[in-house]
Amino acid sequence: MSAHTRQMTRTPLQTAALVMGIIFLAVGILGFIPGITTDYGAMRFAGHNSGAYLLGLFQTSVLHNIVHLVYGVVGLALARGWTGARNFLVWGGVIYLLLWIYGLLVGHGSTANFVPFNTADNWLHFLLGIVMIGLGVALSRGGGPRRGPFSV
C-alpha cells in the first residue's frame, strides 16, 4: 500500500446516517413519480389542498418532496464524518419530533398546514424522530470513532 493511500472506515453511526439519507432521497424522488404518488395531477407546490398521496397514504406536495430531497442530501453529506452523522441523526430526529407536534396542533385544513401533513405523515414523523434519535444516541455511546495505533 502506498504511503499516500489512506483507508477510510465508516462507523456504524455513519452507516446509519447514510442509510437514512438514502431513504430520504428515495422518498423525495418517489414523491415525483406518478402511480407511486396517487392523484399526481392534484399535487400542488405547497398547501393543505394538495391532493397527491405518496403510496396512497402520505399527503405530499412539491415542497414536501423537495424537503425530503434536501434532508437526504444533508444526510449523505453529514454521514461522511462521525460528528456530522451523530448531529444529523440526533438533531434531525428532534426536528421530526417537532414536525410531529406541529402536525398534531395544526388542523389538516388550515393554511398553516403548508407542507402539507396528514395523520399518516404525523405518525411517520414521530416514528422517524424516535428512530433517528435512538440511532444517534445508541451508536455514538463511547465517544468518537476508534482509531488503531497506526491510523492516519
Rank of each mutant, 00 (worst) to 15 (best):
G93Q: 03
V152M: 01
L105Q: 10
P149W: 01
N49F: 01
D39N: 14
L99A: 07
V115C: 04
G41L: 04
T60N: 12
V27A: 15
I101N: 03
T83Y: 12
L78D: 04
F32K: 12
L104G: 14
I130H: 00
G41T: 05
G93S: 07
V67S: 12
N49L: 12
L54V: 02
F114A: 05
V74N: 09
P145S: 13
L57P: 00
R10L: 15
V152H: 07
L30Q: 12
A85V: 05
V67H: 05
A42Y: 06
R146G: 00
T9Q: 14
M43W: 07
A79G: 11
G21Y: 06
L97R: 01
T38E: 11
V137I: 13
N87T: 14
S50H: 04
T5A: 14
A138K: 10
G103H: 06
G134T: 03
Q14W: 04
F126T: 00
V27P: 05
I36P: 10
N113L: 07
T83S: 15
R80A: 14
A120D: 02
A112V: 00
V115F: 11
W82T: 12
T119D: 15
L55T: 05
G142K: 01
A52M: 06
T83E: 15
L104A: 13
N49I: 08
D121S: 06
T38R: 07
I23K: 10
L124P: 00
Y102G: 05
I66K: 03
A120Q: 08
R6F: 13
Y102P: 01
I36W: 13
V62P: 00
A77G: 10
M43Y: 08
H125A: 06
R6I: 15
F117T: 10
P12D: 06
G47K: 08
P149E: 10
L128Y: 14
M8A: 13
A42S: 14
G103E: 02
L127M: 11
M8D: 09
T5C: 06
L54T: 03
I95M: 11
W91A: 11
P145A: 15
G107K: 13
S2T: 11
F88W: 08
N113W: 04
V90Q: 11
G107Q: 12
W91K: 09
T15E: 09
G35N: 08
Y102W: 13
R10N: 09
S61E: 05
R80M: 12
L104K: 14
N49K: 11
I23G: 03
I23W: 08
V70L: 12
D39W: 01
M1F: 13
F88C: 10
S151N: 11
T60P: 01
